[in-house]
Design a binder for these strands. Structure first.
Length: 804
DNA sequence: CTTTGAACTCTTTTT
DNA sequence: GAGTTCAAAG
């Protein structure tokens, strides 16, 4: 990569730039302090994204910095997309596409991208595959068996946790060894070592490796570090309070040539300690970067005074924090509404009812959100919102790409790309069932012990040609298990062949599905869920097609890029849509909504049961602070007197965080089954109250006869009128839906915008000649539905066929 | 080898 | 209450 003219020293800002006109003086200062280390302490809602985006624009416009020289790190892909969009807006459309040229990335995406380039330095080939946590667990369990440890699930989880912690701290197994202080840890480190070499053998990396691997490259090869640092002349980091030591070290490497590191963060919003993040990074920033300048953003532009006060009531009880006070011009505001339901279902029903009511008062669905502490709580809300015909989208939870059927299909592709990848290989070797059971798998593993399972499979498939030990061992397979293994081998080879030919990815997948009768298998194997799963597989094909069409990559690179994306991006990462957002509090970080419902505010839910020491409680408190400060206009806090946990009802107590809020700011919805008169302010009172509580849950003051308020009734009635306008939940209605059922049907002719292609005969590398039945889109990337005699109907992108 | 059913366990939070 | 694991029958 050659950059001829680096701006080595960007000029100090001269006077005012019109770019900064829309910022307040402190924001403007933060955006224009361009050189050297900078710490921006940005309270909730103080416009930090605004500052960062303007800063990027300022660098480009006023300081003559090339977009390619700017690196901005965020925590989620969602945040990346938003930042890019906003930079684009500020810069305006001048045809230079500057926003696109800035590197805006998550740490992990950057890691994946750079590791593809430097894979060799780590003994990986660039075909390496990324393991998600399910794959990781599969590998760990297998290794535990080999290492004959107790094959205990919780032990496996513990080991995964250990490995993850090591990687978060940037420690390789060798480095971890030096830290060992007892024999148990010694043992764990040994396992870490084992795990790491298994990953390398399989030519795979896990999530932590995306960072640790990159770190290793930078540590071992100063030249690479230097050139990267020179390329990224200006580095910015969002949510700096949530960086872990590995990420921090990475930043140091990347900025060592210039020290131009601007970090934005808020210690009150640090919520990823459990993931290895340490506030030490933000608290000690000035120590590591002695000449760092510090800017504090304390004016809140988001919430009402009431909401801000409530948030402050909660957070001020934390002891370990940089003192700061947020203020706003936005005085007053509605009181925070509290509602206590009799159980979790009623809680959800209440929220649904209120959403309808707000909607009737013309709050758009997209401006409302429901937050909860754990993903499991989301289901109740899904049910009730669906029932109330409210459009919603669930963010987080099981990601699309983590679903079984999706992982299955992708596993075939991953094996085709990298057959040494044993986790994926074992995942689909007998899926759909081919008669290859545990015994056969064990034999293959023994046969391939010195090489790989794949080579043992190859040996079986190639029959008596080879006389190696592997072959002898593997040759014990006979009958159904042998034909099964051979069949699997052939499937993978066929996929590889199609990929080698440069066949379109979506076609490869369709062929694969046909070849292994995957959809039939889904149907016979688990009829109940088959419909959903079939649709998901169809959506996967759609996503692949879409990706391929938009991608400017060629050949196998498309597949690699798609697979990387599937491991790094949540399918729900896209923003926008007129639907109510359902998500965990963690997921809400960085977002804002007019109306926020904060549900399940009960002790042992929020704060979580698993909170043990005071530091963890502090973190829960910060989490509550984050939740509250997401709300612009109104906040509704709900809880339930009893809740189903482990499938049975258990009594609850109100969250101490609600008790911490000055009752002055609360308005108890009298439709509640409890009057909340018990809500007394003060953290100190909590422990005391808890002692007082009798086992029969007398904390809650039963008062079930209270009628709904007139306001609530009014809203409920109003809402009835509006219900019909909203269709059944269709979160991604504008996405093209791949109609799987159409695969077996007769093609239906169509003439929409077909460039005159309709009915023409085409020739395709694999399928031969066929007739175009349907055209959607125009140009080389249009999707053609083609009837191939002998093969049947296929959808193919225009550029892959020749029109005869 | 595969399927079935009963027993058993686990629940934070996510890139 | 859901997902996983284990044993026994097909």
């Amino acid at each position: 990569m050659t950059r001829k003219s680096y701006k080595l020293n960007a000029p100090e800002p001269q006077g005012t730039s019109e770019l900064l006109e829309n910022l307040n003086p402190v924001q403007a200062e933060a955006a224009s302090l361009v050189d050297g280390p900078l710490l921006i302490l940005a309270g909730a809602g103080s416009g930090k994204t605004r500052v960062m985006t303007h800063r990027i624009a300022y660098l480009i416009r006023e300081c003559g910095v090339w977009p390619e020289q700017i690196l901005a790190m965020t925590f989620t892909n969602k945040a990346c997309a938003e930042m890019r969009e906003r930079v684009d807006e500020i810069l305006g459309d001048d045809g230079l596409d500057e926003a696109r040229r800035v590197t805006i990335s998550t740490f992990h995406s950057l890691g994946a991208r750079l590791l593809r380039i430097y894979a060799r330095d780590l003994g990986l080939s660039s075909d390496f595959v990324i393991y998600d946590d399910v794959d990781q667990m599969a590998l760990i369990k297998r290794l535990m068996e080999d290492d004959d440890r107790d094959k205990d699930r919780s032990e496996a989880r513990r080991l995964r946790g250990f490995i993850e912690r090591m990687k978060n701290r940037g420690l390789t197994p060798e480095q971890a060894h030096e830290e060992v202080y007892d024999s148990n840890t010694e043992n764990d480190v040994h396992f870490y070592e084992l795990y790491q070499s298994a990953l390398r053998e399989a030519n795979c990396v896990d999530f932590g490796d995306l960072l640790l691997g990159l770190l290793q490259v930078l540590r071992n090869d100063p030249k690479t570090a230097k050139s990267l640092s020179n390329q990224y002349r200006y580095v910015m980091v969002d949510e700096f309070q949530d960086t872990n030591p590995a990420q921090y070290e990475l930043l140091k490497h990347l900025t060592r040539e210039h020290n131009n590191l601007a970090v934005v963060g808020d210690d009150d919003q640090a919520i990823y300690r459990w993931r290895g993040a340490t506030v030490a990074n933000i608290l000690g920033f000035e120590k590591d970067f002695p000449n760092a300048r510090v800017v504090k953003l304390e004016q809140n532009y988001r919430s009402t005074q009431t909401i801000l006060d409530a948030a402050n009531d909660v957070i001020e009880l934390n002891t370990q924090r940089r003192p700061k006070k947020l203020w706003t011009d936005n005085v007053g505001g509605e009181k925070i509404r509290c509602f206590t339901a009799s159980d979790d279902r009623e809680e959800a029903a209440y929220v649904a009812r209120e959403i309808t009511a707000y909607s009737a008062e013309s709050v758009p669905f997209g401006e409302m959100a429901v937050f909860y502490r754990t993903n499991a709580q989301g289901r109740a809300f899904e049910e009730q919102l669906r029932f109330a015909q409210i459009p919603y989208r669930v963010v987080g939870g099981t990601s699309f790409y983590a679903r079984e059927e999706i992982k299955d299909v992708l596993a075939y592709l991953k094996v085709a790309l990298n057959p040494r990848n044993e986790v994926d290989l074992l995942r689909v070797l007998n899926k759909p069932t081919r008669g290859v059971g545990k015994t056969s798998i064990d034999r293959l593993r023994i046969a391939g012990a010195s090489t790989s399972i794949w080579s043992a499979i190859e040996a079986v498939a190639h029959g008596g040609q080879q006389q190696s030990l592997e072959f002898l061992e593997a040759a014990k397979l006979r009958g159904k298990s042998k034909t099964g293994v051979v069949d699997f081998y052939e499937v993978v080879r066929e996929v590889q062949a199609m990929l080698d030919e440069g066949q379109e990815l979506a076609v490869v997948v369709s062929e694969l599905l046909d070849r292994i009768h995957y959809l039939d298998w889904l149907q016979s194997h688990d009829a109940e869920r088959a419909e959903d799963r079939t649709r998901n597989v169809g959506e996967l094909v759609n996503a692949i097609m879409e990706f391929e069409r938009e991608s400017d990559l060629e050949g196998l690179d498309v597949l690699r890029a798609f697979l990387d994306r599937s491991s790094l991006v949540q399918a729900t990462d896209d923003l926008g849509s007129g639907a109510v957002t359902l998500m965990t509090v963690h997921g809400s970080k960085g977002l804002e909504f007019d109306v926020v419902f904060l549900a399940g505010m009960e002790d042992e839910i929020f704060p979580s049961v698993r909170t043990e020491d005071p530091e963890e409680l502090d973190e829960e408190r910060r989490l509550a602070y984050v939740a509250i400060t997401r709300a612009r206009k109104e906040l509704v806090i709900t809880n339930a007197k009893r809740r189903r946990i482990f499938g049975q009802y258990r009594p609850t107590t109100p969250s101490r965080f609600v008790l911490d809020i000055d009752p002055e700011r609360l308005h108890v919805d009298s439709a509640s089954t409890s009057s909340h008169v018990d809500y007394v302010r003060g953290a100190g009172s909590y422990g005391f109250r808890r002692q007082l509580m009798s086992p029969d849950n007398s904390m809650w003051d039963y008062d079930q006869t209270t009628p709904m308020t007139r306001g609530a009734v009014r809203r409920a009635i109003q809402s009835q009128k509006n219900v019909d306008e909203f269709s059944q939940v269709a979160p991604d209605a504008d996405e093209p839906v791949f109609d799987v059922s159409a695969w077996d049907q007769e093609p239906e002719p169509s003439h929409s915008g077909d460039d005159g292609l309709h009915g023409r005969t085409v020739s395709h590398a694999t399928f031969g000649e066929g007739k175009i039945m349907k055209v959607s889109g125009t140009g080389p990337k249009a999707v053609l539905t083609i009837q191939f005699p002998g093969t049947g109907e296929k959808r193919v992108v225009r550029k892959y066929v020749k029109v005869l």
